[in-house]
């Protein structure tokens, strides 16, 4: 429908005020929710408002959030990676093998990260190079990666990681600030810059909105897709190092179902599951909210599986509610 007759001829020089937009945004809503959850937690439990307890709460989201940053970019670009939790399993298993072979912490860490990158590269190869749909490919690699862990470990487990390895999941950089929390903050900043301040980030949005037009605009669409899968694999590898270090052991069932929590975090953060829009600050806020809610439920002794019902409802609810409101307005 033509809108030419309604729009002014001369385009105003200024963009819409950033403040107005910020106040109307999904992120603003998330801030309100985060504050509400924080207050609810502090009322519900006297133990909540304690620096160390709060620090403990961050472990509920740091590992997932690292993956969620990369996943957010992947989903904005119109793809998805359901194999992230299985990459953790495989990377963790590989670390166990290296550890059992007698290598030290540096080699263990390098192995975990390296395997993550390799898994990401494999997903990227199938999607970007062979042009296969990412949802099916990563459902396949989800079985494949964890399947390899089961082949290696069966019903066994790797334990006995060196003491120095424990730092990544249990160590503190300063006072109550854990290594994971600091890493999370650094990665949040890094991904913010990458997505919102670089050419690469811009091409991610372009591809998510219209891959064909992006290609015609000189963007190396498949290279960007490949890099995004690589990045997601890398972040899964890093998360595998942290998680394995925190748990101190590797079982093939490690991180089962985490892909769901990561996707929930990304969607809750305001990323359009169909691609094209979303922000890193939104994902950071979603991570904090999910961490606080999990922790609050923990303080109230609510079992984990009930927590997962809540997560499922949250995932559907955050998408459904705005749509239902929009429908009622019509």
């Amino acid at each position: 429908m033509s809108d030419a007759s309604h729009t002014p001829r001369i385009i105003p020089d200024r963009l819409t005020s950033p403040l107005t937009r910020a106040l109307r945004s999904w992120e603003a809503l998330l801030v309100v929710v985060a504050v509400a959850v924080f207050i609810a937690n502090s009322i519900a439990s006297p133990y909540f408002l304690d620096a160390w307890n709060l620090s403990d709460a961050t472990f509920n989201f740091t590992e997932k959030a690292m993956i969620a940053f990369a996943m957010a970019m992947l989903i904005i670009a119109g793809e998805i990676d359901l194999s992230v939790a299985s990459i953790i399993a495989l990377a963790s298993t590989a670390m166990g093998i290296v550890m059992t072979a007698g290598f030290g912490t540096p080699a263990i860490v390098a192995t975990g990260i390296g395997v993550g990158v390799l898994c990401g590269a494999l997903n990227g190869f199938f999607v970007a190079r062979l042009g296969l749909p990412s949802i099916v490919v990563t459902i396949g690699t989800m079985s494949l990666f964890r399947g390899i862990s089961y082949i290696v470990l069966g019903d066994q487990a790797f334990t006995g990681y060196p003491d120095s390895f424990a730092y990544f999941g249990q160590g503190y950089v300063w006072w109550v600030f854990s290594f994971e929390l600091v890493l999370f903050a650094a990665l949040a900043l890094g991904f913010y810059v990458l997505l919102h301040r670089t050419n690469f980030g811009r091409s991610v949005y372009a591809i998510g909105n219209n891959p064909m037009a992006a290609l015609f605009s000189g963007i190396r669409v498949n290279r960007v897709r490949f890099i995004l899968f690589l990045l997601t694999g890398l972040m899964s590898g890093i998360a595998a190092v942290c998680l394995t270090s925190r748990l101190g052991s590797t079982r093939p069932s490690i991180a089962t179902g985490m892909e769901l929590e990561v996707v929930t975090m990304v969607v809750l953060g305001g990323v359009n599951i169909l691609g094209g829009s979303g922000t890193i600050p939104g994902v950071v806020l979603a991570a904090v909210i999910m961490g606080l809610v999990t922790f609050g439920f923990g303080l109230l002794n609510v079992p984990g599986i009930v927590m997962s019902i809540f997560l499922g409802l949250l995932l559907i609810g955050v998408i459904a509610v705005p749509r239902l409101i929009a429908r009622m307005r019509r």
Binding site: V193, T198, N199, R202, Y205, A206, N209, N210, S217, G218
Partner: peptide, 25 residues
């Protein structure tokens, strides 16, 4: 056209190497 992106980002999409510095927008 890349619908969903604002006008100015559409215009600069193939010229990003000129409007950016060191890969930063």
């Amino acid at each position: 056209a890349v619908k969903g992106l604002p006008i100015f980002q559409n215009v600069t999409l193939p010229s990003l190497s000129r409007t950016s510095r060191g890969g930063f927008l």
